[in-house]
Simulated assay, not measured.
Amino acid sequence: MAAHTISKLPSTTRTPPLLFSISDSNLRRRPDPYPPHLGRTLRPPQSVLHPCAWLGTNQLSLHSSNLRQPPNLSKRRPITATVSFSLPTAKPERDSSSTVKIPKWSRSAIKAFAMGELEARKLKYPTTGTESLLMGILIEGTSLASNFLRANGITLSKVREETIKLLGKGERFFFSPEHPPLTEAAQRALDWAVDQKLKSGDGGEITTSHMLLGIWSEVESPGYKIMATLGFNDEKAKELESLSSEPGFVDD
């Protein structure tokens, strides 16, 4: 009975209306969907109205011509990084001397110094001390000094733990500068490394081994105390010095 009733209903199939047609001479669009009595406040800008044939409605579309780029975008300069081949020194008169050629620091030593600064910032310390330089050597991870420390049981986690025990934690809301200045002990350790390299007269670069031995030369510094606590001594310092002074030694 239901099937018979449905069969007698008039057909409601209609041909879908033509939304718009494109020809060489004109473009006919469907009527404005916003009646005049609604006012002009509901009308979106005509510059962004675009007929969508699939949905049958006017949709908002974004074109490259409608997107505003920030001013002077094309005039922005690319970001560049500057790599230094020297570390801070307290003896500028030595560097300016024309009779003495100051050796360059090795790549691993420069990286260890940069990692030491970063570690000082992580711990929220206002300065980069010998303890930070020591952690920087361990973070660098590929040099003879770094491998020598780990072989003798001195690891980054142990040094960091001893550093916090000795110096405490930084203030919670304190922000270290981008390049925390060196403490006097840390500066003397770097200058010691340069002086020892000059005394050797064997040429080459100043390495992380020189940096580590410079830290060890500062007996009152936190770096020295931490190394001594973890088992480093004068015999191991001499062993490291002997290894780093072998002919053909390269720190990288």
Rank of each mutant, 00 (worst) to 15 (best):
P126C: 04
E184D: 09
L49P: 05
L134P: 02
S25W: 06
P33T: 13
T130C: 11
P45C: 11
T41M: 15
T208M: 04
F85T: 09
I139T: 10
E235K: 03
T99V: 14
R29Q: 11
E239Y: 00
I139S: 05
T12E: 12
T229F: 01
P45G: 14
I226Y: 02
S245W: 03
K225C: 10
I137L: 09
S146M: 05
F249L: 09
G214H: 02
K8T: 10
K197G: 01
I22M: 13
G129E: 06
G204T: 07
V219H: 12
I206N: 02
L243G: 02
S98M: 12
T183P: 02
E239F: 03
W192N: 15
P31G: 07
D32F: 03
R30S: 10
L19N: 01
F232D: 03
W216M: 06
L230Q: 07
L49W: 11
W105H: 11
L213Y: 00
P78G: 01
A186T: 02
R188F: 09
A189Q: 06
L133D: 01
D95R: 11
R188G: 03
K225A: 14
E93T: 13
N58M: 12
K122L: 11
S64F: 13
L182T: 02
R172C: 00
H50N: 13
F148W: 04
R29G: 09
H63Y: 07
A145K: 01
G141Y: 02
M1L: 12
E184P: 00
F85G: 03
E171K: 15
S244N: 08
K199Q: 09
A151Q: 08
S200K: 04
L198N: 01
E205V: 11
Y125T: 05
R43Q: 15
M135Y: 00
H210T: 03
R121C: 04
S146A: 13
E241I: 00
S157G: 05
P70D: 05
I6M: 12
L62G: 03
P71D: 15
P103I: 09
G201Q: 05
P33S: 12
